[in-house]
Structures are given as structure tokens and as C-alpha cells.
Amino acid sequence: MKLSQLIPIIYNWVDIVCLILLSVIPIGLLGHMTGNFLTGRIYKRFVLKKWPHHDKPFKPLPRRLAHLTHVICMVGLALTGMYIHFPFFDANRIIIKYFHYFFAFIVGVNYIFRLWWSFFSDYPDSDEFVLTWKEIKVIPAVIKYYAFMADDKPHLADFNPMQKITYLSFAAVMPIIGLTGISLIFGEWLLPPIARFFGDLPTTKLFLRLIHYLCNWFFILFTVVHAYLAISEDLPAFLYFFFNIEPAHHEEHGEHGEHVESTGSHTEYQESGGSLEHEH
């Protein structure tokens, strides 16, 4: 079967499976929230104010602004992108495409800024995302915690290993979706050298559009879960990131008045309302 014949069939499968997942995942999350109620986790968090512990609770404003910008633009990209693929109401698709490009441009700039910030700024945070073998080994324990098969999850860093995998995947998929998107816009100039591998230029674009579309679903489905967990598992961090409402934690100020990240020992955090987690 030729690629151009196969792609519509794959598209059809992706449409059906991902739309079903998009319907099923919120139902699953609702079930998970019910589990949180039944096991008393909601009470512990929202009433007793026992939220997860953070080794480095301070997140500089540019980092939070970059996250906020990223969220707004990704929502814009998802809505406009979904419209381009599933035109579900009457509108001018060309204008919607330009909105899509606009959001994509901001996300691209933001992504480059975020990479620079992670490695070269005064507050580099790339080490927060490093996944160690020790962390990989505790993944089953983390899954058990989220599946209500354990009361606590191992705490090795601010982000649990599954979070790290998700965030690193986001960072890895971002260039793929970005480059495929750019290739779709400027395909006539960029794609001819690789077009022969796929047959012709339109088939190449059709294939790249499929990759772009798959990445889009990856972001949408994972972001739904990410948003749910961010709010239900760590509301203070969510409020801090989006509304600059600082969580109750120890902060120290340097001699010039700038923020210095708290080393916040486990005991200190528990005193201020942190969660009781096992330190492995």
C-alpha cells in the first residue's frame, strides 16, 4: 500500500482513538478525584493544608511568566489547530491559520528563552529535570501511589520521575511539532531535499502533517492530565505559577535583597503544612 493511501487510514485511526481518549480521560480523572475523596487525600490537602514538599519552592518570575505564556499560547494552538483539522463551526480557516502561526511563533520564542533560562541564566534549573536511574527505579512506587495502592510516594526531588519524563517529553516533542509546522508553511522551500524519500512534495507534507497532528494529540492528552494533577495534587504551586500567590514556605533573602532558593528541610516544610512523604 502506498504512503498516500495509508495516511488517510492512519488519520482515521488517530481521530477515532484520540477523540475517544479525550472523552475517556476526563472520566478517568473524575474517578481519580473520587478516589482522592474516599481515601481522605482531598481532606488532607485542602482542609489540613498538607501539600507536597518542595526542595526548591522559589521559582523566579521569568520562569513563571514563561510558563503562563506557554499555557495561553498552547491552548490557543490547540483550539486553532483542532479547528484547522476539524472545522467544527463556520469560520475563515485562513485567518484561523494565521492565529495558529502567531501562537506558534510566541511558543517558539518562549521555548528558546526557556532553554536559555534552564542552562545559562542566573537561576538555571536544568538539574531539576535530570532523571536518574535511582528515580526510574521508583516509578512503580509512584504509580502505586496514584493508583491508591500506597499512601505515600517516594520523594527524591521536586518533580517525581513520571513528571520528569512528561516534561522532558514535552521538551523533546516541542521541536518536532515546531519543525513539522514550519515545514508545512514553507514546504516548497524546505522540503524538496527530503521529498524524494516520501515520493513527492505533497505526500511529504501529508506525512509531516500527520506527525504534527500526532504531536498535537500528545500535548492535548498529556496537558489534560498535567492540569488535573497540578491542581488536585499541588494547588499552592498552581496558584503560585499562575497568580503569584506564594505558598507558605521558608524564604531567605540574600544580602542584596534578591530571592535565594530555600533549601527547606523536610521538617521545616512539614511545620509549615507540607505533606508527609517518604524520603527514599
Partner: peptide, 28 residues
């Protein structure tokens, strides 16, 4: 679709047959 070749034109058969594709899909 500039430079479309015969293989690409195969997509044409799906322009009027998405309903068939959905009907034939195992999940559906």
C-alpha cells in the same frame, strides 16, 4: 498541491469516502 504525483493522487479516493473509512474502522 504543487508537484503532486500519481501516488499522492491516491488520496483523492478518500475525499468522498470518509464515511466508509469510519464504518470500516474496527473501533467504530
Amino acid at each position: 498541491h504543487k508537484d503532486a504525483d500519481r501516488a499522492f493522487a491516491e488520496y483523492g479516493r478518500y475525499i468522498h469516502s470518509r464515511n466508509d473509512l469510519i464504518r470500516e474502522n474496527l473501533v467504530m
